[in-house]
Design a protein around this nucleic acid. Sequence first.
RNA 1: GGGAGCGUAGCUCAGUCGGUUCAGAGCGUCUGCCUUACAAGCAGAGGGUCGGCGGUUCGAAUCCGUCCGCUCCCACCA
Length: 876
Amino acid sequence: MNELSAKYNPSQVEDKWYDYWIRNRFFHSEPDSREPYTIVIPPPNVTGILHMGHVLNNTLNDVLVRKARMDGKNACWVPGTDHASIATENKVVAKLKGMGIEKHDISREEFLKYAWEWKEEHGGIILEQLRKLGASCDWDRTKFTMEPALNKAVTATFVYFYNKGLIYRGVRMVNWDPEGHTAVSDEEVIHQETKSHLYHVKYFLSDGSGKYLTIATTRPETIMADAAICINPNDERYGWLRGKKVLVPLVNREIPVIEDDYVDMEFGTGCLKVTPAHDAHDYEIGMRHNLPVLEIIDDHGRLNEKAVVCVGQDRFVARENVVKMLEEQGNLEKIEDYTSPVAYSERSHAVIEPKLSTQWFLKMEDLAKMALECVESGRIKLIPDKYRATYRHWMETAHDWCISRQLWWGQRIPAWYLPDGRFVVEETPEKALEAAQKLQPGITQAELRQDEDVLDTWFSSWLWPISVFDSDRPGHPEHKPNRDLSYYYPTNDLVTGPDIIFFWVARMVMAGGEFMDDIPFRNVYFTGIVRDKQGRKMSKQLGNSPDPLVLIKQYGADAVRIGMLLCSSAGNDIFYDESMIEQGRNFCGKIWNSWRLVSGWRVDDGAAQPESARVAVKWFDNLLSRTICEVEEFYSKFRISDALMAIYRLFWDSYCSWYLEMVKPAFGEAVDRRTFDTTVTFFDKLLKLIHPVMPFITEELWQSMDKRREGETIMFQGTPKAGPVDDKFLAAFETAQGMIAGVRGIRAQKQIAPKQALDLYVAGETLPELDPVLEKLANAKVFRGTAEGPVSSFLVGTVQCSVPVSGLIDTSGEITRLQAELEHQKGFLESVRRKLGNASFVAHAPAAVVEGERKKEADALSRIEALEKSLAALGK
RNA sequence: GGGAGCGUAGCUCAGUCGGUUCAGAGCGUCUGCCUUACAAGCAGAGGGUCGGCGGUUCGAAUCCGUCCGCUCCCACCA
């Protein structure tokens, strides 16, 4: 055995063992005859850096993988990164801006060149960081969602769904940033309560009757684009408007009055102006009623010539002017102050302008139905189960998926347009040309124009569990799965956040069903969101997120892993607290020191095993088995933090505080061989139990326990198996522990030094076998019966214990304490007897419960008797 | 507004089928200890009307209703 340093120094051992694991390719997996256990990483953004959410997620993944590996499975954890089109493109745009380059001043090709440079420079940093955490990924299998093979899979998938008739082009409202000159995603829009006005505008009937209706709007500058006035069909106030036509103020264009349930009769005047081109809801109403779409605002947020009035003016300037004109013409009824949420661009802070544009969509209905069935049938389990409701809600209300994005970084949509506007969808430009030539013979490649948009990032991530193994399969279900895909698919568990349950989880289920005719994973474990102590989401802006690498350096990777797991009960948000990591560090120290103790013992082969040690071994052996069962149970339910806590307590409390104290040889003496060997075996099992959670320190200690050869590792040692458990013995031991604590309590109270031996009188059911333990740990000689004279006494269950403490006894204090306890017991007895006296209870309750009450009664009686005896001994 | 969830010790959370002495764990707090592995430690102790009210039941932290407080997701009403 090697000499251990006085303190565990994580930074000195972590890199050493990680390199050792890599050198020996312990993380690498190839299909073989063993049962596979597969996890694909939720791919982090390629240019991202490790944050606490990653730490939590990847620690959980790593625990599961390492556990499976020790259970003898062929464990494979596939790592990789996501190209994250929006986030990455934003970063590149920002970087270019810093260099004085605007995105729109350079070509797509130039931009992509910069983007790839950026990716090469920053890409994969996060994967390097995961190594520091101890993640046991099969790095040989590292994938990137935009590498050529995966791109091919994405393109093939697009063509597949297009040919199947599920992908179509449609018009949709996008969030247009008139300053940034670009569409922004919903995620990049911030809604802020903003003070504005509600303008009440009169619309006169076109029949010349002079009658009018009033609408309330926050955007009077759009009235020139009005296509209709809408009322609720159930609104009796406006029955007279049915079928009528009104004139749009200022431009005097005639528009119909239509009826739609969308209108809220309570809000405003109950009349709604419908402006399909400039409001998402209005657009939908317009679609339902076949209204014309009139766009009057251009890409810069200015009114165009179709507006007729205020042409060329900025929308906000136009608003003022329109209001003025309305007032002059007698169309303005009143102006109210009004506060409502307004959408702003996260980047330019410009007010978002809803704008119509043509996008690509994937029909969701059938895919969603299938994805729902996979979960409803129980084939895929969501943990915690409450997310099933969320999932169902999503799947039942799924809208078609808008898969196009107005970006450059990503997989470009494989649609090619002919000059006449017709288009073909093919996997390659060559095939596109071929197809185009069928439509227009003689057309050349140069005349074809590929769609400018790229695909939504999720359109590549939903293939992830398939494409990391076999990129030829997506889009080609007829393609025979390769060896990897047949072996590793479906994967076992997915660990991810509930915020992407629809974006990612559900869509992987869809892709799996479509291309594999199988589920992509069996269990989905949802982690919470990591928050700070005040409950705020950790974010860069707030600066409340610690740098995991700094923490790892400071406390060690094992401590960080433990710390995260300790505060992460499944499905709840994580309130991160650095003290949890300190706790992890302390635990490392405890483990380390316990081995320092044992490894320093001198062993005497000839010595006999003391009785106290024999009993200690018997006890810990039983307790170990029981705990292993509990831990397995916890793992099977993904209650990782409970599993950890069970091992933590076994290691710290049971093994260190109780077991080692029992078998520890007296100062200067040797330990017998039998006890020593068993103790080493126990320690070995404890290390293996905790290894999935704390890979580094366990490898370090396991290696130092014995002469190990290169290529040996704790990683592949089997998880310890539970033997039979003697529950009665364990219960009896718990009583003994209570008695020891009682004696120690008396010592603390009376300031009696641990070295001073005491007498302990025991009345009640105890195991005499445990007496040597009592004597060793309580430093008390055990007698049966009740002590005479002044004693300090206590109860453990129904066992009456008394310790003669002549000269030290505070008689009146002792009497007060005992009397209070006696009162409590009498009250308890009374309540139990009331229950038993209730005929209805005895008649209805199960026999076992009634029996339990009778036992309570008997126990209470015996305790009362013991207490009275103690009081009598004190002369009361 | 629609959907989901939460409320148990100072903090973070367990608590299964309503029923064992069930009111728990870890951390923190308090007290005493530098006891020859560990003060990043050891020993001991205190701490909760299970959010409020009502109901079902022989029996409720657990089931039902209702109110209060909080969180998340979706829509973000002209």
